[in-house]
Computed example of a mutant assay.
Amino acid sequence: MSVRGLLGRSVLPQAESMTATVDLLRSAALPWRRRPVRLPGLALVAAATAAAVGLHRWLPMVSPLLSAILLGIAVGNLAPPGPRYAPGFAVASRTLLRLGVALLGLQLVVGDVFGLGPGVIGLIVLTVVLSLAGSLWFGKFLGLSPAQRLLIACGTSICGAAAVAAADGVVDGEEEEAAAAIGVVVVFGTLLLGGIPLAVWLLGLSPQAGGLWAGISIHEVAQVVAAGGLIGSGALATAVVVKLGRVLMLAPVLVVLGVRQRRAHTGRTGARPPLVPLFVAGFAACVALGSSGVIPGPVLAGAAQVQTVLLAAAMFALGTGVRLATLRALGPRPILLGAAATVWISVLGLAGALLVG
Rank of each mutant, 00 (worst) to 15 (best):
A167N: 08
A167P: 08
A167W: 03
A167R: 04
A167L: 07
A167G: 05
D168W: 01
D168C: 06
D168I: 07
G169F: 03
G169Q: 08
V170M: 05
V170C: 05
V171C: 07
V171D: 02
D172K: 15
D172G: 13
D172W: 06
D172C: 13
G173P: 01
G173A: 07
G173M: 00
E174M: 14
E174P: 10
E174Q: 15
E174C: 11
E174W: 12
E175D: 15
E176A: 14
E176D: 13
E176I: 11
E176W: 12
E177V: 00
E177F: 00
E177S: 04
A178F: 06
A178D: 01
A179I: 10
A179S: 10
A179W: 06
A179G: 09
A180P: 00
A180D: 00
A180R: 01
A180F: 02
A181N: 12
A181Y: 10
A181S: 15
A181W: 09
I182P: 01
I182Y: 00
I182W: 04
I182Q: 04
G183Q: 01
G183L: 01
G183A: 10
G183K: 00
V184C: 01
V184W: 00
V184Q: 03
V185T: 01
V185G: 01
V185K: 03
V185S: 00
V185L: 05
V185Y: 02
V185P: 00
V186N: 02
V186L: 13
V186M: 03
V186H: 10
V186W: 07
V186D: 03
V187T: 04
V187K: 03
F188E: 04
F188V: 08
G189Y: 08
G189S: 04
G189E: 02
G189M: 10
G189D: 08
T190A: 15
T190N: 11
L191V: 15
L191N: 08
L191W: 05
L191C: 12
L192Y: 08
L192F: 02
L192W: 02
L193Y: 05
L193M: 15
L193T: 14
L193V: 10
L193E: 03
G194F: 15
G194E: 12
G195Q: 07
G195Y: 09
G195M: 10
G195L: 15
G195N: 06
G195A: 14
G195D: 11
G195E: 04
I196K: 10
I196C: 05
I196T: 08
I196P: 04
I196R: 06
P197C: 11
P197Y: 11
P197I: 06
L198G: 10
L198M: 13
L198I: 11
A199P: 06
A199W: 11
V200D: 02
V200Y: 00
V200W: 01
V200S: 04
W201Y: 13
W201I: 12
W201K: 15
W201H: 15
L202Q: 05
L202A: 14
L202D: 08
L202V: 09
L202Y: 06
L203H: 06
L203C: 06
L203M: 09
G204I: 11
G204T: 09
G204R: 08
G204H: 13
L205C: 11
L205A: 14
L205Y: 04
